[in-house]
């Protein structure tokens, strides 16, 4: 019983701390990478674990230059991401066939206004440890007029 009296407050508070840390992480570590671009007004972050995937649909307009930034906590390793059209045709991936990584930024523009899917994946870890690492991943879009 005493164990649960101690554990319960931790269980209730920890996710909030985690969420707060994610916001703090986004502001301190991610926003600076959008330097020169206007950030989108919304906050899109999650605490993820290895093997997690997430995707979202975005609309891009033809009069802007865009920077897509996938900003993950280093503990998660290099977060993979793909950009697809709405018929799921691959347009860009940061993960090369040879296993090399192209970084966490994708600068682009669109010839005509269109919706695109951004899909991210946190790589599985190959360690003997049974401890699951969780970390913040933020998906951010910056834009500037052409």
């Amino acid at each position: 019983m005493k164990f649960f009296k101690i554990l319960l407050p931790i269980l209730l508070i920890a996710p909030l701390l985690s969420s707060a840390q994610c916001r703090s992480f986004t502001k301190k570590k991610c926003l600076p990478q959008l330097d020169g671009y206007s950030q989108n007004d919304s906050f899109n972050s999650a605490v993820l674990i290895p093997g997690d995937e997430a995707e979202l649909l975005l609309t891009f307009y033809d009069d802007k230059d865009y920077r897509l930034l996938i900003c993950g906590h280093p503990i998660l390793g290099e977060v993979e991401f793909e950009v697809l059209d709405t018929s799921e045709q691959m347009i860009y991936t940061n993960h090369s066939d040879d296993g090399s990584d192209k970084g966490n930024l994708f600068d682009f523009k669109v010839a005509s206004t269109q919706q695109l899917i951004v899909r991210i994946r946190v790589p599985e870890t190959e360690t003997a440890s049974t401890l699951i690492h969780e970390g913040c991943v933020s998906i951010m879009v910056g834009s500037k007029d052409m």
């Binding site: 920890a14 996710p15 972050s45 999650a46 674990i49 997430a54 995707e55 979202l56």
Partner: peptide, 16 residues
């Protein structure tokens, strides 16, 4: 597959 992104309290508790 997570279709997005904010984890509910119960999920956070489960992870922790």
């Amino acid at each position: 597959k997570i279709r997005l992104l904010v984890l509910p309290l119960a999920l956070g508790c489960a992870i922790l």
